[in-house]
Each structure stands twice: as structure tokens, then as C-alpha cells.
Write a protein that binds this DNA or RNA. Structure first.
Lengths: 161, 161
DNA sequence: CGTGAAAGCGACCGGTG
DNA sequence: CACCGGTCGCTTTCACG
């Protein structure tokens, strides 16, 4: 269970993980040691999964995002397991969801351009049977954040601060 | 322009940004100082945008992802600017794309459950005129990574390692 | 770019009130 | 939790080859 201080800490670290503990502590109104202990606990409890560097898509030549909607007639557990494993091998696929509704699966794929997407697409369908695929191209990424909203956290009322 | 060493460094840091420079250096076959200098330059050049903590969606009560497709009849620059600004105020919207094809915009929204999505949706349409909206719910997030594929980087041939 | 080495900060871990 | 030390490791910067 988290309280307001934990939430403040998380909101800072999910925006910038390079900020020293002492500075985080100051911002949330805590001294260094207990703040450090909280961060440690947040990592142990798996609330903080990892710390990563975010790269500029342009700099690594992957400025085009394509959303791939997949409809399949294969609905077995086994097929999904194999499909998921396959997808994991494609670094171009950065997100992969099982959907409700008309579409069964949705992929977000990042590539340099349309040609590269076509090549990716051919490599994909060569590896697995998919009945119906449709691709939607993003012209512009207007917003992208890894920061999750923290307003839905159930706060621990015993520690109201 | 990047070379193979830069690419190796990036692949390490975009998976785990907590690895000490000395360890990164060892893995890419460099000594600490030049490796540190490269990382510094990658940050200056904006290849590395930032370092962030990734949180567990379940822990912050946002395990449901909804993809929102928007069709509008407003296609002016001004309308888009206002719309983008509005979206930026909604932390539930973690991704936002301008699309080609039938759909004009695509949002990825994270919320605790369907009820919360409905509340979000009402707040959104109360703020701006949107002609047609359709929502697709993700049942499961099978893959999610912030790591971009590095195979499309144009390598500097003058530094073949 | 490599090495070695200095200097300083920050993480980490005690203990006390 | 605040506060005070303390150690240790890592970052950061230097001089030099």
C-alpha cells in the first residue's frame, strides 16, 4: 500500500531517474534516509520495475510508427504462445496487445520508413499464419510518455501525512 | 553519426540505465574514460533523451489500456494545436498520434477499469468537439518495451572498430 | 583512445533522539 | 522520521602516452 509521499516520489522518478535521493527527499519534504528506504522498498515491491534510458526515435532512424491490427482464426492457447514468442524476437514491435472486439491483436511497430515496414511485414507473415492484417500509419507522434497517471493509486489512509 | 560502439552502449542503457559506466565500458570493450565521454556526447546530442523509472501498471492501478480512434471534421492547424494542448493535460493519455487513413488521431489511454475509462471519456468530450470516437479495449499487454530497434542506425563507416 | 590516479559526490548503513 | 556520522563505490576530471 502506498501513501502520498510514495506517490510524490514515483512522480519524480518516472519523469527523471537521475535526480539524487537527497534532492528527491527535499522535494517531497523528507530527509534522505527514509526517502532512500522508501525508494528501496518501491523497487523490492516491484512498483518501480526498472530504470532505463529513453532514446530519440529520429536519432536511431525509427521515426515511423505503424499500428498493425491482426485478425486470426487461430484462437488456441498454443497458437498465442507461439505468436507471442515470435513477436518477442522482433525488436521493431515495441508494443503488443490482445484486444477485445473485432481486432484480435494490435501491434505498435517502429521503422525508418514505409519500405522498411514492408520488409518487416514480409518477414513477419513468412513466419506465421495470420488470416487478416491491416496497417495504419502514424504521421506524427504528438505525445509519448512512459509516465503513468498516479491519481488512481489507492492511498493508504493510515499515513495521511 | 554513430558507430558500433555507440550502438552497443545504447543497447545496454536502454535496457538498464543503472549499470555503472565501468561495467558498460567492459561490455563494449572500452575503458572507462572514453566510454564515459561517449555517453556524455550521446546525451548532449540528444540521442539519449532522458533516464526514467518505469512503473508497474498494476501497482499504480492502471492495468487497462484503451485505444481511442478519433475522426474529426476539424482539420485546421489551430484546432490541432488546441487539441494537442488539451491532451497533454490528461495524464491518462500516454500516447497520441496523428494518423493517415480513415482515422485521424489515435490515443492510448491507461485507466484502472472500464468505469474509469467512461469517466475519462466524458471529461474529454466535454472539453472539445470531436465528431466520431471509437474505443478498443486491450485485454492483455503481451509486450511493452521502451527499447527502440538499433538495427536501422546508419553506422559511421570511418570508425569500423 | 588507453592508463592511472586524484577528487568529490552520492549511495548505503549504522546509531541516536 | 529527523539527524548525525561513517564507509564505500562510482562518477567525473585530470595528466600523460
Amino acid at each position: 500500500m502506498l501513501d502520498r509521499l510514495d506517490r510524490k516520489i514515483l512522480s519524480i522518478l518516472q519523469e527523471d531517474a537521475t535526480i539524487p535521493v537527497a534532492e528527491v527527499a527535499k522535494r517531497v519534504g523528507l530527509s534522505t534516509t527514509p526517502c532512500w528506504r522508501r525508494i528501496q522498498k518501491l523497487e523490492e515491491d516491484g512498483v518501480i520495475l526498472r530504470r532505463v534510458a529513453l532514446l530519440d526515435p529520429r536519432s536511431v532512424n525509427t521515426k515511423v510508427t505503424v499500428f498493425v491490427s491482426i485478425v486470426t482464426n487461430q484462437h488456441s492457447e498454443e497458437w498465442l504462445r507461439r505468436f507471442a514468442e515470435l513477436i518477442r524476437e522482433f525488436p521493431e514491435v515495441v508494443e503488443f496487445y490482445r484486444m477485445s472486439g473485432q481486432v484480435d491483436y494490435l501491434l505498435r511497430v517502429v521503422v525508418p520508413d514505409i519500405e522498411a515496414y514492408d520488409a518487416f511485414y514480409k518477414r513477419l507473415i513468412a513466419k506465421i499464419e495470420i488470416s487478416d492484417v491491416s496497417s495504419a500509419f502514424a504521421m506524427e507522434q504528438i505525445k509519448y510518455t512512459t509516465a503513468l497517471p498516479l491519481s488512481y493509486i489507492q492511498l493508504d489512509k493510515d499515513k495521511p501525512v
